[in-house]
Each structure stands twice: as C-alpha cells, then as structure tokens.
Design a binder for these strands. Structure first.
Length: 653
DNA sequence: TTTAGGG
DNA sequence: CCCTAAA
C-alpha cells in the first residue's frame, strides 16, 4: 500500500508497512526480529543492490582469471626449473589433471610454491563448477528480468517525482546477463588470454560505471569491503563457493537490475540513488561479512597447518604456556604491498581491497607467555607446594577450555567478522601492538576445584582456584602477607565499562559477550603478547580491575547530521520501530543503541515544542525540528488508528 | 531482545 | 543517558 495522499504533498514519500502497526499491547507477542522487508524497499535500493552484485561478480571473476594466468606461468616456471635440475620424479605433481594440492605442498613447501599450488587448485575447482554456476545464473537472470520489468513499471509511475528517465530496457540487461553466462560456461581448463579479454569486453560498459560505485563517503568501518576476502581465502580453500554465491544471489537479492541504467544521469545518481545504495548496502554488508568470516577461519587453520615452524598453534597452547616471543613476518614484500593498500582501502577505495586481500598477513607465534598469573601462598609453604599451587591455578583456568582474543593497541577486537584489513591488522605500523589473549572459555566453566594441597594447611590456605583468582604476592614478606586475603572474584558488572566505551571502533554488537566473557577483559586473562620487539611485551595495558563502580557511558551529543539521519529514518519507519531505525540509519555506529535513538527522538520532540530560547546545545535546524513534529504527529495518529482498529469494542465510535 | 516510558 | 517492566 502506497501512502498516496502524503506522497502527493511530498511529506513522507515512502511506502508504509502493508499491515497496520498495532501498538504492542494490541499486537500481542512480538514476532521474531525482522529487518525492513523487500516490499518496503525503496526502488533505488533495489537497483543499487543489483548493480552492486553484478559489479562484484565481474570484479571477482576478472581477478580470478588474472590470478589464473599468473599462476599458470608461475607453475610452468617452477616446473621447468625442477626439470632442468634433473628431478623428474617431482614433476608429476604439475601434470594437468593430477596436480593435487596436498602432494604439491608436501613436496614443495616454499611459500611461493605453496601459493602457486593453492591458486592452481583454486582455478581448477572453480572451473569445474562453472557450468553449474552458469545454469543457475541463467535461471536467476530470468527472474531478474521479470522483476526488473515490474520495477520499471513502478519507477515510471513515479517518474516525475523521482526524476529517473532512460531506465534501460530489461531486454538489454538480459542480453548482457547472457553474455555473463556464456562467458562462464565457455571456460577452459587453462584460462587463456582470449578468454580473459572476451570476458572483460563483454562487461566493459559495466566496468565504466564501476567508478561510481566506489564508496567515498563510507565512514569508519561501516561498510562492506568484505568481498575482498573472497579471492584471498579461496586461494587457500579452493572447494568453496560458486554454489554458495549462486544461492545467495537467487534467494536474498531477489530484485535485480543494472546499474548502467542509472549511470546516464550522473547527477541524480549522486543526489538520490547513491545514498539509497549506501543504506541498502549496509544490511548486505553483514551477510557478506559473515560469509567471509568462515573463510577466514579456514584460512587461518590452513595457514597454521602448513606453516613449517611454529605457525599458529592455538591448539598447542595448553601445553606451552610459557614465554611468548612472537613476531610478524614482514620480510615478505607482498606483506608490505598489503599494508600500503590496506590502509587506504578501509577508507576510500573499494578496488584496493581486492588487491590487498590477495596476500596474506603472516603471523608467527612461537610461544605464549602468561604475564599476570600471580599466586598467593603462605611463606612457610614449600616450593613443591608452590609448584602444585601454580599448576592447579593454571589447570583450573585451562580445564574450562580456552579461547583466543585479539588485541590491537590495547583494544579488544570483538568483531569476528571483520577482515584483517578492516581491523587494521594488516597495517605493519600497528603490528607492534597486536596481542593475543588466552581466555578461559565462558561456555565451559571449569568445575569447582577443590584444593587438595598436601602441605600443612591452615584454614586460610584453602584457595578456591577459580579463573577469577588473582593472587597478589609470591612468597614475599610474610609479615605483610595476611593469609586471609583471598582475592575475591570481581562482581560481574565491574567490567562492563571496559568493553563498550573503550572499544567503539572495534566492538561489535553482533557479538554480544556474556558477563563472564567481559570479566576476562580484565587483567585476569592470560595475556600472551605478539610483538616484534621483546620489550613490546609490555604494550598490552592491563586494566585496573579496581575500577569497580559502574560508570556512565560517555555522553555523545547528537550531531546535526545524526539528527538528520534519525529524522529521515523515523519518517520512513515510524516511532515504534527503533531497532529498525537503528539498523537503517545507525547500523555502523556502535555507540548509538536503539534506546539512544528512541531517547533522542523523545528529546527532539520536546525540543521542537519549546521555544528556541529554551533550547540548549548545538542548535538543530528549524526545518529538521519541523519534520520531527510532523512525522511525530503523523505516526502518533497512525498508531492511534491502529489501536482503534485493534480494539473496536473498547472504543466504540 | 525490544519497546515504552519514567527518571 | 539510565533503569526497568512488559511483551
């Protein structure tokens, strides 16, 4: 249902929910959380989504075949070299059709060779899936064509208001899409230059438009430069994802269209379509990010298992809780390439993401250190008792299982879905401050541990070995050691302040942490440190666990632009859907919760009603306040209507 | 977890 | 911005 009347006078200008929005009491139990649905989606959002998908596909495919070309040459070079060296026994692994990555890696373990093998395997598996991909693409394109025609009809109805003309005929899109399909299905096992150029040219027009896609106004980590990890991780896990890409395309991105249709009108693109693309993109960012997270995990596992010495050995941690001396391997020139580009891609240029993600960030953790696991024990205890006590303390921590945390410059990176580039881990300038923590696994709390020390025991010597324990002193100054100072676990809420305000840039609400988890944000976590220099072992700030009082979150007044975004979102969504408002307009702003937005709206309404002289803080433009009042009035009325509809007997006319 | 509303 | 009942 289009809200025709208001739309005519240019008030809200969007669709309102198909179903009346009843007040909570009338709606009954809340339905599962849902985001803005397709039938409420702005046409521009749909167009933009599709265009983005097409571009993404084009980009990844081009990159793939460039990689294939390079790899082929590289492998041939290596093969030739080994043949020249008279080691024919090894050459079989290079034979087309029998090149098994595992055997390759087993025999040729240098970095270059592994890369070549992985990339080759990638190409082969990808090629083998191309036919299926092409078939499914054809289907989804059929759907796309249908939907685009519907969309075109819709858009033309609104032509005058939204100013889009020259929307490309769906048939043209169709032919382009078919070009994609036929290209894909004509893949040869060994990618040829001819194929590559043919592929590129068929998408030249799209490529021309690609410049417009570069998202220059992305703020901080808001948006998804996440497809960068596709090529990267696939190089290490070849058998992954053509099928999944297709499924994603056919199910989630239902409406499809071609960005090219919009490019003719560049100015309107910037003024109207691009902002819509931006907001639409936000919701897809998470999906892509999650997809990539899995691949990254695989990547790390793979990296760990193939590293020749040390490598990532999180599995080995329980056995080697000793000195930590780790470093980044920055000798790889490609790592530097990665760094230089990683920085810029996180702020401006999407295309760089592809390039920087081509090369791995290499970490080498040789061992772990436990900097702060202090034991308190009576001075008359024996050394053997001390050893056992330490052992028990460590065992108590470890028995619950371990998990690994990542600290960058003292900030805990909670968002598992971030790429290394996005998190800043690919930036060598910061690597000195990269740390890994070993934390007791909150999901497997260690069983209550009885201390059965066989030493002469005073009643005060009954230490409860829980992971919370921080024992302050080691065999020092028995006169000051009051044996009854058994350190208490901190109350669970003592550390909530450590996570949110301290980690705005890296914290993610997508990973809500349990209170137990937050507890280990404190110094009680085992903190091995990854650093180049040994003296950098001190860079991880151990937080003051004494900060026990619950602190208020830092006050962050809303800027005018934030108000603008809020008003805009509420105009579209109404005053009762703060979670949706949050997702729509503040998805990437971690420190604005939906409660904050609701509160801000409340104060905005209040501000708009009082005289300008009574207002304080940064002045909000009057036109915004006017919009606040009218939107608020409208949605209140809407809600009242729904209430009457829902409760006809309570309010007889 | 999300909404709604008082403080 | 906090707190919390209610859904």
């Amino acid at each position: 249902m289009v809200f025709q009347k208001k739309l005519d006078v240019g008030f809200i200008g969007c669709q309102i929910p198909t179903m009346p929005r009843f007040p909570r009491s009338a709606r009954g139990k809340r339905s599962p959380p849902k985001k803005v649905e397709n039938n409420q989606m702005h046409p521009f959002d749909l167009l933009a989504t599709v265009a983005g998908e097409l571009l993404e596909k084009r980009e990844s495919s081009c990159s793939l075949y460039e990689t294939a070309e390079r790899t082929k040459n590289h492998v041939n070079t290596i093969k030739q070299k080994h043949l020249d060296n008279g080691s024919p026994s090894k050459s079989d692994v290079f034979d087309q059709g029998s090149c098994d990555e595992g055997s390759f890696v087993a025999r040729f373990v240098s970095h270059e060779e592994r890369r070549a093998a992985s990339a080759l395997a990638l190409v082969k598996s990808d090629v083998s899936e191309k036919d299926g991909f092409a078939r499914k693409s054809a289907q989804s394109i059929g759907t796309l064509k249908c939907e685009l025609q519907k969309l075109k009809a819709t858009v033309s109805l609104k032509n005058d208001r939204i100013g889009i003309h020259n929307l490309e005929d769906p048939m043209i899109l169709d032919s382009k899409a078919i070009a994609l399909v036929s290209s894909d299905s004509s893949v040869e096992l060994t990618p040829s230059v001819d194929y590559h150029s043919a592929y590129s040219s068929s998408f030249q027009s799209v490529k021309d438009g690609a410049e417009l896609v570069v998202d220059k106004d992305d703020d901080e980590n808001s948006s998804g430069r996440t497809h960068n990890c596709a090529l990267y991780s696939k190089a290490f896990k070849p058998h992954c994802t053509v099928e999944r890409r297709v499924r994603k395309m056919t199910t989630s991105n239902y409406w499809k269209a071609d960005r090219e249709a919009m490019i003719n009108d560049g100015e309107r693109w910037n003024r109207e379509i691009k902002p819509a693309l931006h907001s639409r993109k936000l919701s897809y960012t998470r999906q892509r990010t999650q997809r990539c997270s899995f691949k990254r995990k695989k990547l790390l596992e793979r990296f760990s298992s193939s590293a020749s010495n040390g490598g990532f050995c999180s599995q080995d941690v329980p056995d080697s809780l000793v000195k930590c001396d780790t470093k980044f391997d920055s000798s790889d020139p490609q790592a530097h390439l990665n760094d230089a580009q990683g920085r810029s891609c996180s702020t401006t240029d999407q295309r760089l993401s592809y390039e920087s993600a081509d090369h791995p960030v290499k970490l080498s953790i040789k061992s772990f250190r436990v900097p702060e696991l202090f034991i308190e024990i009576p001075a008359n205890a024996t050394v053997g008792s001390l050893k056992r006590t330490v052992m028990e303390a460590v065992t108590a921590v470890l028995s619950g299982g371990l998990r690994v945390g990542v600290l960058l410059q003292g900030k805990k990176i909670r968002d598992d879905n971030k790429t290394l580039v996005q998190a800043g881990i690919s930036n060598t300038d910061k690597l000195d401050n990269l740390g890994f923590t070993l934390e007791p696994n909150p999901n497997r709390a260690p069983p209550p541990h009885k201390s059965n020390s066989r030493e002469p025991e005073s009643p005060n010597n009954r230490l409860q070995f829980t992971p919370f324990m921080v024992i302050r002193r080691i065999l020092s100054h028995a006169d000051q050691a009051t044996p009854d100072t058994i350190t208490q676990p901190p109350p669970p809420n003592t550390t909530a302040n450590c996570t949110d305000s301290d980690h705005d840039s890296v914290h993610s609400h997508a990973n809500p942490s349990s209170s137990v988890d937050q507890m280990y944000d404190n110094s009680k976590a085992l903190v091995p440190i990854l650093a180049v220099k040994s003296d950098a072992l001190s860079v991880i700030p151990l937080r003051n666990s004494r900060r026990s009082e619950m602190v208020r979150r830092i006050r962050r007044p809303f800027s005018v632009s934030e108000v603008e975004a809020l008003v805009q979102a509420v105009e579209k969504l109404g005053t009762g859907r703060w979670r949706d408002v949050k997702l729509r307009a503040f998805d990437s702003v971690k420190h604005r919760t939906y409660v904050d937005l609701k509160d801000k709206w409340k104060t905005l309404v209040h501000t708009a009603r009082i005289s300008p002289q009574q207002r304080r803080g940064e002045p909000v433009p009057q036109d915004l306040l006017d919009r606040v009042l009218s939107a608020h009035a409208y949605w209140c009325q809407q809600q009242a209507k729904s209430t009457r509809l829902a409760e006809p007997y309570l309010l007889p006319a």
